[in-house]
Design a binder for these strands. Structure first.
Lengths: 200, 200
DNA sequence: TTAATTGTTAGAGTGACGTTCAAATTCTTG
DNA sequence: CAAGAATTTGAACGTCACTCTAACAATTAA
């Protein structure tokens, strides 16, 4: 006697559903408790099904990070093209760059993928691409601010490297929930650094 | 018929042996490939034996980080008490603070323990203690440099927060092996930041 | 010295996980 | 509508952290 036939409906946008569930799960319960089977359960897939789409957990995490960065990229480009002073756009850039708070999934994923011991050549290139878009946009914004006479004349590339180190440091503090690392205070520190470095 | 009796000799300093092996293994093969059984094999212990001493893998990693920091603390205090200008001691502080290079086990462990989703109250306190010793020493050094007229008069606490964010950012770039993050260049950036912030 | 107690060690067992795989089902297309 | 491609399931596998029991060694008590 055959068992009852369960419906096998096709899902809409299965990749997106999984990645969205992963972001939520990381924000709510952390990476350590994120399992392929559990993730599948959230969206009505078997573990094998999730593997069919992503091939491995590492690849799932990297694709989720890329997906998240894509959405943020849209916001960033919108912000950067606003017809307001460069300083105002720089503040918006910083606001987008920093994590929302402890366990921000985008930052958790960043840490996870970069801490892999043996990334493939291809994965490394993709990870680096994610860095470069932020970096290039920052360099271009600073260069524009300088050419408009709004910022002091510094080397935009060199400033961007230092600025991103500062943001990554504060971002790390925020995302791990280091006591004393409050988003408001961090924004204050960064603002002061910007004034010190670029103010006329 | 009983099997052959293998010697069950007591090991000397078993905890230290395991922690040293963990540091080496992380530096050479990364955290992902670090297993309790494999670690035991390196020092002639069974997996159960390692667990007997550390109770859990998380606890092993945290104790290893503490052990590593203890050794670095000795070096740091030696460096900070040298009878040389504060600036020179600050440079030595930075050199000790930053990772040696990609996969520096101290930084890998730091990232691992802070990225745990649900640390115990006690673990969190111990992790925070590791941060505080660096922070306090930095604040004291800067305050000393100011009082000797060597540094500009800034808020030492505020400077230390910003300086550590910068160091953590650059340190993260170095430890994950971000292309373009070279230790020499990082030291250059940090040196420039110090001059900008504290130079008279 | 021996007996009892405590501390140390091995290794088998457990459950959860990522991953693989073959079979079954649904969709697409000629 | 038939054939091939794409999708979906769930069982199986190997590995891992962790648990547990029994054995062994060191220390202490008598």
């Amino acid at each position: 006697m055959p068992g009852p036939v369960r419906p096998r409906r096709r899902l809409k946008q299965p990749r997106e559903q999984v990645m969205a569930a992963a972001m939520t799960a990381i924000a709510e319960r952390g990476l350590a408790e994120l399992t392929i089977a559990g993730l599948g359960r959230e969206v009505g897939m078997s573990s094998g099904h999730v593997m069919y789409y992503f091939g491995s957990k590492d690849e799932l995490l990297l694709q989720t990070l890329e997906w998240s960065e894509e959405q943020l990229g849209v916001e960033r480009r919108a912000v950067l093209s606003r017809p307001v002073p460069a300083r105002e756009r720089l503040d918006a850039f910083v606001d987008l760059y920093l994590p929302d708070g402890p366990r921000d999934p985008r930052w958790v994923l960043w840490s996870e993928v970069w801490n892999r011991s043996h990334p493939t050549e291809e994965a490394l290139r993709r990870q680096l691409d994610l860095e470069l878009v932020w970096h290039r946009d920052l360099v271009a914004l600073v260069a524009e601010g300088i050419s408009h006479g709004e910022f002091r004349s510094v080397d935009p590339e060199r400033f961007a490297v230092r600025m991103r180190a500062l943001l990554d440091g504060f971002g790390t503090h925020l995302v791990v929930g280091l006591p004393g690392a409050d988003r408001g205070q961090v924004l204050g520190h960064v603002g002061e650094f910007v004034v010190d470095s670029l103010g006329r």
